[in-house]
Nucleic acid binder design. Sequence first.
DNA 1: TCTGGGGTCCTAGGACCC
DNA 2: TCTGGGGTCCTAGGACCC
Length: 420
Amino acid sequence: MNRTFALIDANSFYCSCERLFDPRLKNRPVIVLSNNDGNAVSRTKEAKPFVAMGQPYFQVKDVCRRENIAVFSSNYAFYGDVSARLNMVYRQFSPEIEIYSIDESFLDYSGFDGRDLESYARELHQTVLRWIGIPTCIGIAPTKTLAKLANRLAKTTPEMGGVCDLRDQGKREEALKRMPVEDIWGIGRASAAKLQRLGVITAAELAALPSPLVRKLLSVVGERIVHELQGHACLPLEQMAPQRKGCAVTRSFSTRVTNLDQMLEAVSAYAVRLGEKLRRHGMATEALTVFYHTSPFDAGPSRLVQKCVTLPEASADTLTLLRAARDGAKAIWKDGYRYSKAGIVTMDLVRLEDAPHALFDGYDREVSAKLMAALDAVNGKFGRGTLYPAAAGIKRPWSTQFAMRSQRYTTRIEELPTIG
DNA sequence: TCTGGGGTCCTAGGACCC
DNA sequence: TCTGGGGTCCTAGGACCC
């Protein structure tokens, strides 16, 4: 059966979210910054000439002032909520959807061949704009890789009105000839450089390469991309989010950390957050790795250390995680460095109910479950951080900065937008 | 002490994505 | 002065075993 996929994504998603509740931003350039107000991660088309993707904010501060660019810290709670609303609308236009990222979803239109898919897509585009207020682009093609490519064309070719249909073979070949190889989904900097050294510049040239050569050059991943470019679908629609394999909480500090107490406070806060994340997914971990390091941008002595701590048994208990994280952080501490970032990483997660009990040294799982449920209930109702273990500390000079965050319009009752 | 093939499992590191 | 966070997948190489 011939397959048909559509990829719909939001234009400048974070910026478009910020515009939703502030009409004055409509034609004004807008950017949104990463954690700690570090780098620009979203830009409207008006801002793109002045700010590069990922550019550090301190480098463009002056430009932003001069060009009257509206600057926001990121507000993930808000964006996540808008994302959920988008997907509710998408579902009305296709029962089969894969939520690929916070602002992109694949829709399966296999078997819709008889219908005028392009008009249908335009209707989806208009409906989303009317109901949610977020501008989108849609790419249609027989494989996910080609749908991504079509989406990119829709985005960069305003005359298309936000929809690009590449089901027609002739159109597809034309599009591949014009698409640089580095713009293909799955071809990053390193692969693009390898290909360019061989004189492979366009997507069409990559699609024409013999399979064994691609295999040798870019492994099975590259081979799959070539097949997809040729119109043979290799990547299925993943409707069910797969069980997650790892979980991490990592943050840069807003100021450098130079003493152990502050490091322990930070690591403790991350452990608390890790516990929340694990429990929300019904997962537990048997070990965690604590790391911290100095900044690659600092002149002084550099240091990068990590320590893996094994737990007595798989756990999502905040107190257990906290103890392990603090032990790990203490074990690798050394004075005399200006640390810029720390984190806790876990891999090989297990489902909490599948986790075997430790023979010795275990903790009372029932007591833990009740305690953690109470903790999560209080923090869910009154906001994260309302209730936390004493060891997680309270003064946080190092903690992440969001100096220019918009209100949590849709997720905090006290921050609802007001009229008048 | 030397010789060898072939399998599994784990880890580190690279590459890519948003 | 100020440079993000959180994922996935693949491969190579080492350890270990028979």
